Amino acid sequence: MSETFRYRLRTPGGGLAANLSAQALTSLDAPAHRLRIHRDVYLAAPGEIYWLDLAWLSFGLRLHAEYLSTRHKNGLVVKVLSLDFPLSDYRSEVAALAMDGWVRQACNAPDIGARARYDQERARVTFDWGIPADPFDGVTEMNY
């Protein structure tokens, strides 16, 4: 069964928005083409997606990958069905926040502190990824 998470952040100039529809599958039900995020946690992308959106979706899933890996001993594949957004209210980083929200909603994962906020002083949106602070912190060929 698929679930949809709707990410929204209102700002004086509009905001950020994205709708992510996805479903959680076991490795046995998974599509052949998928990205390995961590151990036995995978991401299956929709047929066509912008590379930067895919990178941020992957990062959003990576934020929860260790938690998911310990709870899904037979593996988990998050199959993205769609990522929809208005072009005027979107930045690729929002894909990570939408994935973070989807994982918390669909898999009962804890809130790790990933956030976007509007910085009034600088008149721009800033992102905080919780832990790890850097999207690719600690990522090496040996620890995935």
Rank of each mutant, 00 (worst) to 15 (best):
I112M: 04
L87G: 10
N108L: 03
Y50P: 08
Q105K: 15
V78Q: 13
D53M: 06
L43S: 02
A44H: 00
T126G: 08
A123P: 10
A123C: 14
M99V: 06
L54A: 07
S82C: 12
G75V: 10
H38S: 05
N108K: 14
R36Q: 07
C107I: 11
N74S: 06
D111W: 12
D84I: 12
F127H: 08
N74M: 06
S92C: 05
K73V: 14
D84S: 11
A65L: 11
D40K: 10
L81P: 05
I112A: 05
L54F: 03
A98E: 00
L81G: 15
L83G: 12
F59M: 09
R62M: 00
S88K: 04
I49S: 12
L54V: 00
A123W: 08
L35A: 14
H38D: 06
Q120K: 15
F59D: 05
V77D: 03
R124G: 08
M99T: 13
L87E: 14
T126K: 11
Y50A: 11
V80K: 13
Y90E: 13
L97T: 07
D119M: 11
R36A: 08
R115H: 04
R115G: 01
S82K: 10
I49H: 05
L83I: 12
R62N: 02
Y42Q: 03
M99F: 02
Y90R: 14
R71N: 10
D119T: 11
L52H: 07
D40M: 01
S69L: 04
R122F: 12
D53N: 08
P110L: 04
Y90L: 04
E48I: 01
G113C: 00
D111Q: 05
Q105M: 15
